[in-house]
Design a protein around this nucleic acid. Structure first.
Lengths: 334, 334
DNA sequence: CTGTTAGCGCCTTCAG
DNA sequence: CTGAAGGCGCTAACAG
């Protein structure tokens, strides 16, 4: 039982076919001029020997791995999963594979990942919603030539970006405005820990004040972008501030956690408490009441990021940016 | 602007440190006896030159890629995502990376993936809920030495497996039994297209009959394991069979799709229609009414699969099987 | 249209 | 304790 069935090599095929290795290499890549009959013959031998090119050997000489790194903070969050689906699909068609690295919402882990993702193992990297500060992120990625970041800005020479069309804090302020217009006066906010979706609370308050929307620092909390964190944060926030008549959350998972906490405290939604999320995951539309949130085309964000990355991988180091729209989807939670 | 900053090689480090390449290689791997001062000196040079070993070169000689392939039918399904999280976490700790391949519920795509996942690019493969028949799957994987399949059986010499503790069809029959005991008499079933969770309907009916539970072939449908498919299938099934007072679905996403269809048709759950799902994704507990379903520890399924795979990767080709339990979680949809 | 030569960067083996 | 030689499997750059 030989379980490591010595794969045939180029040399084996060449010998068996009575041609040189180059000829075989050429028929495999479809490059150069080869007579139809040699090509045909070589193909048969390849088939017969079940020859498959050795990736490592090829990589060693071409310096291309045909592997892309995808780093995201939480692959169980449907938001990232949908982006990943777009990325994987795009690159699969282009003959690249996707390597996954999950930072688990842990900045140290994210650093370790970026540090270890040597340029000899991937041709390019997509970094989603990095939790790192510029000072931390930049040194880690400037070694890599092909980088695309999603939901974050970057000095132009370092890589391309895919971000929302709107300025930072847009969603939070728009949500607050909408809530105010529908009669809410004490609007809480559950911010996300460091990410593009995390909002500068000072700015947020300033903007609300400009709109004459009541503001109160103790109505605002921060948590990790998970359901559990939203639930726990919601419990505390709502218990300490029963006066709140609305809560905006940084993403849907958190909003849904808050919703659960609210229901457990006997609050009726939307009568007692209005709720707005942030990324329109499937679950948002299926809970009762359905969650008002912002929608963006996550799959498309993934394919856009992939497309921009491919350009860099292929040597076009121009800075590009793609922007997606966030549109408010009004459902029954408000 | 040199964006491909010629990485230092072993030879560079050796030259700079005034030692041989072997010495450098040894300090990197911590093998062989090296004097403390040479080791120290070499380390400094490595640091200074920011030397990182070239993966491809190493792979070429050691035949180890430190890359694992994970193939699943749908990475947007939380069920697979949680398994993947376990796999990724486990292998990250072991110094391996995980390459993702999404077959998109498409058997042809799955075949192509397995065929192209040459043994030269991954050290091992985890195949989740394959949609392929044995005749299709076996030839594709027997070339690979390290395989673990999840939710499926396999001839013992081909790889290890992680499956449920219970016989095929267990969940469906148990669900039906429970529904019958709680007074339901016309129980529909939405089966999943080919997978271990897909049930042999003849057997299913036989078992129900043995339990004196009413049976009717037209109460049973089959669909892809997605929310959308469940929704559409549910619409048709419920419209054509208004007599149904319960529906069991192959997984939660489908059950939730059926739930939506039922609600749209004005059915009250559970009064008019009881509903049971299959894998306890987060959404199941958050909808109204919460879904009765089966729970298994998905993250743990992932780490178990990873552990079994690692054994094979490291040369232990013994057949192992790990089993997980599915326990019925009764919530308010029944 | 096809072949030859020369490595890619590293590790294994065998000498010192 | 350290080094020199050879080769992993492939392709780029020239020759013919």
């Amino acid at each position: 039982m030989t379980r490591k069935p010595q794969r045939a090599t180029l040399a084996d095929v060449a010998r068996e076919a009575g041609v040189s290795m180059m000829t075989v290499s050429r028929v495999i890549h479809g490059t150069g001029r080869i007579s139809d009959e040699t090509r045909q013959h070589v193909r048969e031998i390849i088939e017969k020997l079940e020859y498959r090119p050795n990736r490592a050997a090829r990589t060693l000489v071409t310096k291309r791995t045909y592997m892309i790194g995808f780093v995201a903070p939480d692959i169980t969050n449907p938001y990232f999963t949908e982006i990943l689906q777009g990325v994987e699909e795009f690159f699969w068609r282009e003959g690249y594979n996707v390597m996954l690295a999950n930072s688990n919402e842990n900045p140290e882990r994210e650093k370790a990942i970026l540090d270890q993702l040597e340029s000899t193992m991937v041709d390019g990297i997509i970094v989603c919603s990095s939790r790192l500060s510029d000072d931390e992120l930049i040194p880690l990625i400037e070694k890599h030539s092909a980088i695309v970041v999603v939901n974050r800005n970057l000095p132009h020479h370092l890589g391309s970006v895919v971000t929302t069309l709107h300025p930072r804090g847009y969603r939070a302020v728009l949500a607050a405005k909408y809530l105010y217009e529908t009669g809410r006066r004490r609007i809480g906010y559950v911010n996300l820990v460091r990410s593009i979706s995390s909002v500068n609370l000072d700015m947020f308050m300033q903007e609300l004040q400009a709109l004459h929307i009541p503001v109160n620092p103790s109505w605002y909390a921060t948590c990790k972008p998970t359901w559990q964190a939203g639930y726990e944060t919601g419990k505390v926030l709502l218990a300490e501030h029963p006066e709140l008549d609305a809560v905006i959350a940084g993403n849907d998972l958190v909003a849904l956690g808050v919703m659960r906490a609210a229901v457990e405290q006997g609050l009726r939604i939307p009568q007692d408490l209005a709720l707005i999320g942030g990324d329109d995951i499937l679950m948002a539309s299926q809970v009762t009441p359905p969650l008002t949130t912002f929608r963006s085309d996550k799959y498309h964000i993934g394919t856009m990021a992939a497309e921009l990355l491919l350009r860099r991988v292929e040597g076009d180091l121009t800075y590009y940016e793609h922007h997606y729209d966030d549109v408010l989807i009004i459902r029954e939670s408000t």
